[in-house]
């Protein structure tokens, strides 16, 4: 919701890319419906785990992006798209192997970005053709990546949709976001008694009623 307001979007194909999510969703009948997602690790995980392995500074995504700028050569990495879903764990393993083989770190970073982002862009393109949405929203920590933005924008424009990247300051982990969701839930009459409340970091987006999003 914060992302929709900040990205100035009303009825988007929402692309969420972070450490917790890699998902393509649309809003329908009070819920977000997942059109496509990662079958294993998220895009944020991929970048962070590779960065850690390469001893790059945290946050990993930013470090990989800056190294990738010096990369020139595209190295072979597995490209796995199944329908609207993607899978990144094989790519991570292969990238770590290239690192151990002593391949150039900038080239590996460049190749990770090119391959993993293109996979997501393809899944987004398929979902866009199926849903015929006219807006593409890009949100989550990885949405700060310039190359990813460029790719998703190209996909959106190629299919006559407008591109709505969420401004960086609203893109990352953010307490205000959670608080805002809580307030909207409360105002819509969705409440949880304190004794029954608990922390659930693995809450699926499509298992939550979100009646407060206006019908397009």
């Amino acid at each position: 919701m914060v992302a929709m307001a900040a990205g100035r979007s009303r009825d988007p194909l929402a692309v969420l890319v972070s450490g917790g999510h890699t998902a393509i969703a649309v809003h329908l009948n009070k819920r977000w419906r997942i059109y496509g997602e990662t079958e294993d690790i998220t895009l944020g995980n991929l970048l962070d785990m590779f960065a850690r392995e390469a001893e790059l500074p945290s946050p990993g995504g930013v470090a990989v992006e800056s190294k990738a700028k010096e990369g020139q050569t595209l190295l072979a990495l597995p490209y796995t798209v199944k329908g609207n879903d993607v899978a990144y764990s094989g790519l991570l393993t292969a990238a770590i192997r290239l690192l151990k083989e002593g391949k150039s770190l900038p080239d590996i970073c460049f190749s990770i970005q090119e391959v993993s982002f293109a996979m997501l862009a393809e899944a987004v393109e398929r979902s866009l053709v199926q849903t015929r949405k006219k807006e593409v929203l890009l949100a989550g920590g990885v949405a700060a990546n310039k190359r990813l933005r460029e790719m998703i924008q190209l996909v959106a424009e190629d299919h006559g949709a407008t591109f709505h990247p969420v401004p960086i300051e609203y893109s990352g982990d953010c307490g205000a976001q959670i608080a805002c969701s809580g307030r909207l839930a409360f105002e819509s009459g969705v409440t949880v008694p304190v004794p029954e409340s608990f922390v659930n970091p693995r809450w699926r987006l499509d298992e939550i009623d979100v009646p407060w999003i206006p019908r397009p």
Partner: peptide
């Protein structure tokens, strides 16, 4: 040809 994809990757896919 997909404009978003690296040319070499695009051709091989």
């Amino acid at each position: 040809r997909k404009a978003y994809r690296h040319e070499q990757l695009d051709a091989s896919i």
